[in-house]
Design a binder for these strands. Structure first.
Lengths: 327, 327
DNA sequence: TTGAAAGCGCTAACAT
DNA sequence: ATGTTAGCGCTTTCAA
């Protein structure tokens, strides 16, 4: 910039003004500075700019389990969309669902002075964030609440979505509804199960312990469980699968079962080719989660100091056939 | 940092040494500085550090069409993996396949002094990069070559993958093979078509113009084309679909066709639930593309000044049934 | 082993 | 409309 100033015969500050399109610069000066800049191939240094003006970088940090997972990359895209208009860029990293890595990455992002940090946490310990929060560093949690501190959080409407699924099945005559899930390690899983139980209670259907199928950690386990349960005495007329992987396994197992004995199926999370496969699901928009999270965070950056909020991303039931079979 | 120095009763530089784990600092001093830092909740400022030490930030930029697309988010993940070990973070943005937005975002990333810029370009004009390249700014192209300049490029083995698909079909007795694609606007599309034609020539099968089906811009158009063509006189015994969206549409259309007249199908790009749907594909690893791109870029950062290279991400044919039907 | 001075590239605050 | 001065938080260089 110093070189541009010399070449254009003006002061450093004037070049700065031109680069930032500040008012009160004569057109002639602008032209002179611009051409000098072009000749020298000048490029502002955002690092220096951010350091001087804000002592904060013009980036927003995002920590997810795995950026390659379409759900999380959807969230990333939503964040990107929301922050782009303010000239902020997305700095993202994958935690591998590892609490220690998450911690290290969060520290790194804070060192980088991100304007806001959005976290899909895999940890139950966020003490290290307390000093930062005291200094009004903006931290927003996505998909899972921090548990041990109060901070803005954006969650899927897990309970509501699960209730809707069960009520939908009940409307189609089902009472013997199996809950197909993993073990209750994850927050979202527990919530969806809670929604299932609430809906069953509202419908006055006692939850049959034999129809609570656990241990479906992935598509393969899920398929195995469904196949073996269908060979049993107690066969449900409908299955509610707690996430996309589990649903995929169930679909595979059901495809092998004879049409006549095939239970109805509704899955939480949409799955690709769900329309093609005729799978009814409780869907939700991952980009919406990113957008809401970023919007909440930017509001805090702008000085919003209301009490921490919890926003819900709505779900919507998509009927595609598998959930509308009658009992 | 100044405050830490005062509190620990040492100089600024000593604090800096401790923070960077530089040698030649007495254990006592380290302890004093560390505790002072902890008490004050001190956190290094990576912006300032990068500004002073490198005049370059410790980030790598990535520009893709849409981060929400699983293929691109896979690439992002691969880049992330490759750069993480060096303390570099990923700064990413979506271009919406819009050349002007791509340009603006590239400039922005260069302003941010990314250590390397990885680009999936949608543009045919990269003149604006020339001055940067002259200054040894590292720019690497992914998935599509820049066309108008020489720079490292990582491509899928489009030609090889398409040839493998056609040969696989021929081995199963097929000669009437339809090419199902969009119009030849995209590089990858043209290359895959080239591979198809090469293989057909090698097999001494003349390409039948009536079996070159264009205009499949998305799943719906693809499904429509397949449905209408199957109702025609000239029905192929096999279909080669040029990308995942097109394959998805074809799968949907074929599912509606009577089993007996259903052509074999191989698609380029893997699709989710491909195993479930029994769809044979030419697969490739998006993360591998990101890793290779980042590795090439980092080698340049380290001073590699050999001529620009072009690396290929290998493809592999996954047989799942649809591509193994006999003619 | 430690420190003092200078400066990375830019902008805020106050001139003029 | 333009310029001067100071300094963001850190590291480099040189000295002790």
């Amino acid at each position: 910039m110093r070189q541009v100033a010399e070449r254009a015969g003006v002061s450093l500050k004037t070049v700065s003004r031109v680069m930032n399109h500040e008012p009160h610069v004569s057109p002639a000066t602008i032209a002179a500075v611009d051409s000098a800049a072009r000749e020298l191939g000048f490029r502002v240094n955002t690092l220096a700019r951010d350091l001087r003006s804000n002592a904060a970088s013009s980036t927003v940090g995002l920590l997810v389990g795995d950026l390659a997972n379409p759900f999380w990359s959807g969230v990333a895209r939503g964040v990107e969309r929301e922050i782009a208009a303010r000239g902020l860029r997305l700095l993202s990293a994958s935690t591998d669902e590892n609490p220690e890595l998450e911690w290290a990455l969060a520290e790194d992002m804070l060192d980088r002075r991100v304007r806001a940090l959005l976290v899909v946490t895999s940890s139950s310990n966020h003490e290290y964030l307390l000093p930062e929060l005291q200094r009004n560093v903006v931290v927003t949690f996505l998909d899972r609440p921090p548990g041990d501190l109060a901070s803005d959080t954006i969650l899927i409407d897990n309970v509501g979505g699960a209730r809707e699924a069960v009520r939908h099945l009940a409307r189609h005559g089902h009472r013997d509804i199996a809950l197909l899930g993993d073990f209750d390690t994850f927050y979202t899983h527990r919530e969806r199960r809670r929604g299932f139980e609430q809906a069953m209670a509202e419908l006055d259907i006692p939850v049959d312990r034999d129809l609570v199928w656990s241990g479906a950690g992935g598509p393969d386990q899920s398929a195995d469980i469904v196949s073996s349960k269908l060979a049993n005495a107690k066969v449900p007329t409908a299955i509610f699968a707690l996430n996309n992987w589990i649903t995929a396994g169930a679909v595979r197992a059901l495809a092998r079962a004879p049409e006549s004995t095939r239970p109805a199926l509704i899955g939480f999370d949409d799955i690709e080719f769900g329309d093609l496969l005729g799978v009814s699901v409780v869907a939700h928009d991952s980009e919406e989660m990113g957008r809401l999270g970023a919007a909440a965070a930017l509001a805090r950056v702008d000085g919003d100091s209301s009490p921490p909020r919890q926003d819900l991303v709505p779900t919507r039931l998509i009927a595609r056939g598998s959930g509308e079979r009658r009992a």
